[in-house]
Amino acid sequence: MRSVLAALVVTVVVVVLLVSYDTRVPMRLNPESALRTPAAPRSAAPRATPTPRPHPPGSRTAEGRLFTTPYTRIQVEATLYRGRLVDVRTTLLGGSDTHTNALNARAEPILREEALKAGSADIDLVTGATTTSLSWIEALQSAMERAR
């Protein structure tokens, strides 16, 4: 059995990958992103301007501590309803990013080749995850503690 927090972390990791896509300037990000289930197919199209969603009476929202890594500054706002996380907003994500130059390469017949089909699935953790994404989880935990 997976704990609630574990399930949450799964969601969070996937979402973090989403929010850390372009981090050149501090910006506000899609507040609904954390509510996507990890298994949901996602569109590659640009996302609409974030609109805060309403929450039922008794919901508690708090902003966590500001977390800094050598490359980014992250702050997260969490909303809890009856002890469960119902909304997450990344209120600050500042830093910069680099990408590798892409060059063609040849295939090796000894290996099976397939096209890269990017998708998502129910996952426990991520290899190759960035400092940003792991730090985002920390920032979220801080926000959740304050919202309790």
Binding site: L17, I123, A129, L134
Partner: peptide, 25 residues
């Protein structure tokens, strides 16, 4: 930092997409 040891299991480990941060490869 994205390199992982798991004990027990099974664990589902996503491999981050190298170019699209919102995807697992």
């Amino acid at each position: 930092g994205g390199d992982v040891v798991v004990r027990g299991g099974p664990w589902r480990v996503g491999v981050q997409h190298p170019r699209q941060r919102d995807r697992v490869a």
